[in-house]
Write a protein that binds this DNA or RNA. Structure first.
Length: 427
DNA sequence: TCTGGGGTCCTAGGACCC
DNA sequence: TCTGGGGTCCTAGGACCC
């Protein structure tokens, strides 16, 4: 990478003051849709969304689809009404993860201070990289060039003195753009923007603020802190007040680890029988437990989420006496929490299972298994069975083997622990 | 064809301990 | 006997983000 003037794609046009603009926000353009179009060039130029499921919403929309007013999070039905010839593709998470890893690798060539926010965006702190790679604007242009040339994808990059201004900047130069907000321009940039652009202002908070006559960032900056506190609570008020004045002390955190791991699924048809719900909880427990084990962790808190047909949603969690990574312990806890709801004639749209409160497996003071929960079989080899299943799935895919395939039609309250059923039936 | 699936953070109330 | 404050842990719900 050279000076900004040498950078292709005209992104280096910026010749203003980027001193102190050491925070970059890199945001991939229409990421899932772009990955799909990259491998199916015949879709280029067409309205494409990724989403798919029967009761689903749009996860990503190509810019052609957006011309019809289609946006992510819109229901698939509404999207199809706006554009009947819309091309709808089912999500392929593995492909997006692989593309994401390639993007993150390019970013980490610039600096180790990369904080991914999701598969398709990341913050970078380039303060220490300018000697090697040039000014922030040149670094941003270089990243955009590499992503385009090596990955055939486009991204937009915001360059600013703080995280949230960098993120706003990337959003305002999409697609395939770059925007530098010099320190001296931050307030001019922020003031006219609607409050809804601020981190933490969603529909509810916006409504509260509008009632106070606060519509722009400038309005917010002029509002006394006490007034804000009464409207949105102490923590929210302090943060909004700071952001409105261009202040954001957050630094780039490259080592962020997950605090919870969850899986949930909206069923195409509501679940109405106990057996169906248990089967679904088992499937979700397997998925979550596998991901916990993948990381070499153990969890102490297990939770379920249930969304009823009327969209009312409840959660229940239980903190166990010790830590576990066992599918059966997580499943048992989930079913107990479900049973505790005492539902009579359930109509369940969505079920979810979550683990939190993690430790690294070896460092946990104790390993909680079914045994320590008082199960009948003190010699249970269930953790070994988990490992066998994980290994089989890693080789042959998730359909290869699992507790789910072991279960008879009428589900038992507890999983078999004698080992005699520990063979996949292959169905 | 109303409303996905992965998360984080905050609040409020209760239990419990000192 | 009445009254209490502070701290921590746990749970449920909800706002918010991508």
């Amino acid at each position: 990478m050279g000076r900004s003037a040498d950078i292709p794609r005209s992104a280096g046009d910026f010749d203003g003051d980027d001193a102190g603009c050491t925070l970059l926000h890199v945001d991939m353009d229409a990421f899932y849709a772009s990955v799909e179009i990259r491998r199916r060039p015949e879709l280029r130029g067409k309205p494409v969304v990724v989403g798919g499921s029967l009761r689903g919403v749009v996860a990503a929309a190509s810019y052609e689809a957006r011309r019809y007013g289609i946006r992510s999070a819109m229901s698939m039905g509404q999207a199809l009404r706006l554009c009947p010839r819309l091309i709808v593709l089912p999500p392929d998470r593995a492909a997006y993860s692989a593309a994401s890893a390639a993007v993150m690798a390019i970013l980490r060539d610039v600096t180790p201070l990369v904080e991914p926010l999701s598969l398709d965006e990341a913050f970078l702190d380039v303060a220490g990289a300018v000697r090697l790679h040039g000014r922030p604007a040149a670094i941003a242009a270089g990243i955009r060039a590499r992503v385009s040339e090596e990955l055939a994808l486009t991204c937009s990059v915001g360059v600013a003195p703080t995280k949230f201004v960098a993120k706003l900047a990337s959003a305002r130069c999409k697609p395939d753009g770059m925007l530098v907000i010099p320190a001296a321009e931050v307030l001019n940039f922020l003031n006219p923007l609607p409050v809804t652009v601020l981190w933490g202002v969603g529909a509810r908070t916006a409504e509260l603020l509008h009632r106070l006559g606060i519509r722009t960032v400038a309005d917010l900056a002029d509002t006394p802190l006490d007034t804000l506190r009464r409207a949105v609570g102490v923590a929210g008020a302090e943060q909004l007040h700071a952001l409105a004045h261009g202040l954001d002390p957050r630094t780039v955190q490259p080592g962020e680890v997950e605090k919870s791991i969850s899986a949930d699924h909206t069923n195409p048809v509501d679940l109405t029988t106990e057996a169906d719900v248990r089967r679904e909880l088992l499937r979700l427990a397997e998925e979550v437990a596998r991901r916990v084990r993948e990381r070499g962790w153990v969890a102490r808190t297990i939770g379920i989420k249930i969304r009823f047909a009327d969209f009312r949603t409840i959660t229940r969690v239980r903190t166990l006496p010790g830590w576990t990574d066992s599918t059966s312990t997580i499943y048992e806890t989930a079913t107990e929490l479900y049973a505790g709801l005492g539902l009579d004639q359930p109509r369940i749209r969505l079920a979810g299972v979550k683990c939190e409160n993690f430790r690294v497996a070896g460092e946990a003071p104790e390993q909680l298994t079914l045994d320590t929960l008082g199960a009948e079989d003190p010699g249970s080899s269930r953790p070994a069975a988990d490992q066998v299943i994980d290994a089989a799935r890693a080789r042959f895919g998730t359909a290869a083997m699992g507790y789910g395939t072991l279960l008879p039609t009428a589900l038992p309250t507890a999983l078999p622990t004698t080992g005699q059923n520990d063979r996949a039936t292959g169905d």
